[in-house]
Design a protein around this nucleic acid. Structure first.
Lengths: 134, 134
DNA sequence: CTGTGTGCAAACTCTTTGCATAAGT
DNA sequence: ACTTATGCAAAGAGTTTGCACACAG
């Protein structure tokens, strides 16, 4: 069972393993890398019989993000996507379906970056490869 | 005067050069490459003494986008940014100020792209280099 | 017990839409 | 005149917040 692992994960991140957090974390981290919106995760939790409000899902996602367990992905539009894969990698985005697919961190290489303006440094480079039907 | 040029620009794009469109186009295209949100553009138009509603600014931005005069940039967050530079290029995004800066199209090169999944093809690659204070 | 987390509903922000009026050709 | 665009206000999405109650330690 993943229950114990998830509790430890949360504790290590400084978050109390409440029932809702454990349930959400199990959905997020129990089955490999995932890309979720708050709405999708809430739906899954409810389907799994968990009593969680959408507001708590939002709060929890942001707590997990602050704790370094998730990364938010900027794909534009208005929905916020969260990625359970926090290693360095990029994404395909299938416009028609609103679906994200990981591109392994090792495959894409970005060259020719100019120097950032004064007093600023690069925190992160997002590459989103947008896909449409052929 | 840019008035005549802007009218022609709109006409070429199949858009009637109404007073508001001319005013917005003049703000957008009259002074080099720009990155605007609807709110910023609306504010500028009002300051310039133009009577335009925010709703019309939104509508106009999307019309311009559909006409190929603007490109929308996905930087995440909730605001939509529009770029008057429609050539192939990428962006610095200064998180602290919500400011976008063009990176010339020629400088960045993305290598090692994997094949897109079945029946899909690449429509566009967005590279956003996020900057934070040093 | 004590403090933190949750649920709910309401507030908020950004954006879109419907419909009567105004403007372009 | 005829058609298309605009303004306004209201609706709509997605997200955040405030506060009373519930739960973990």
């Amino acid at each position: 069972m993943t229950g114990v692992d998830v509790s430890k994960l949360l504790r290590r991140a400084g978050l109390r393993p409440t029932r809702q957090r454990v349930a959400l974390a199990a959905l997020l981290f129990g089955n490999g890398d995932r890309h979720v919106t708050a709405e999708i995760l809430h739906e899954e939790a409810v389907k799994a019989g968990e009593r969680v409000s959408l507001a708590t899902v939002y709060n929890t996602l942001h707590q997990f993000e602050r704790a370094g367990l998730l990364r938010e992905i900027a794909i534009g539009g208005q929905r916020a996507y969260f990625d359970t894969n926090i290693s360095n990698h990029n994404h395909f985005f299938v416009e028609a379906e609103g679906r994200l697919v990981d591109i392994p961190g090792s495959s894409i290489r970005v060259d020719g970056l100019p120097e950032p303006p004064e007093h600023l440094e690069i925190s992160h480079i997002d590459v989103v490869v947008r896909l449409v039907r052929k």
